[in-house]
Design a protein around this nucleic acid. Structure first.
Lengths: 101, 101
DNA sequence: AAAAAAGTTGAATTATATGGAAACTTTTGC
DNA sequence: GCAAAAGTTTCCATATAATTCAACTTTTTT
């Protein structure tokens, strides 16, 4: 589990060792757009190229990367599928935190 | 990380010990609706009560629980926020898996 | 087994996400 | 500093998600 900033700071150029061959990030939903951008850049793709993989214009990719939460699950899956990345969602629930109002 | 079935099998009535005070579930998008339902029931809420917390009719909750093929992030966040549960997502990326087409 | 509560469904409406096109701005390379 | 590439924005159309209402079905309670 790391923040987006920590992730960005990572020297992703130096990969190659098996230990570094796989990345996993836990994130808040709000940064989903940043995540698309990060993974796209890690794949060395322009917005236009990613758009081609999915079948949309570069402007659409731009919008997805900057727009945070108003996206459908389907779109998110489509993008990360094109980037050959797996997305998983998790729900964390604290018993004590909940009070019926 | 557990499947939905394992989760359902869990005896959630017996909580109270600190070890059992927190639940975490990884899920596929396809079971998100089931997840809403599970957490709602764990909170001992009816669809109508959850709807009131969010400001929608019970029929809407019903639809979200059964028909989650496609939902927006905003809706998901709204629901789980009302249930006092955190939603996170993780992206897993394998270097080797990707080839530029 | 009747009544009440909880959940589901269908039809209709509203809101908004997806998307393209083109003009515009920013960044990058020389 | 200029040109090309990459990214952003605006306007617009279309598709579909979000939502309600009311009738209906299922489950629970007494």
């Amino acid at each position: 589990m790391m923040t987006l900033d920590q992730m960005k700071d990572k020297d992703i150029g130096k990969v190659g060792t098996p230990e570094r061959d796989k990345y996993e990030f836990d994130l808040q939903m709000e940064v989903l757009g940043d995540m698309i951008r990060s993974v796209r850049k890690e794949r060395n793709l322009t917005q236009e190229q990613l758009g081609e993989l999915i079948g949309v214009q570069k402007s659409q990719i731009s919008k997805l990367e900057r727009n945070t939460k108003n996206v459908t699950i389907e779109t998110i899956l489509k993008v990360f599928r094109a980037l050959k990345a797996n997305v998983r969602f998790s729900v964390e629930m604290n018993e004590s935190e909940f009070k019926v109002v």
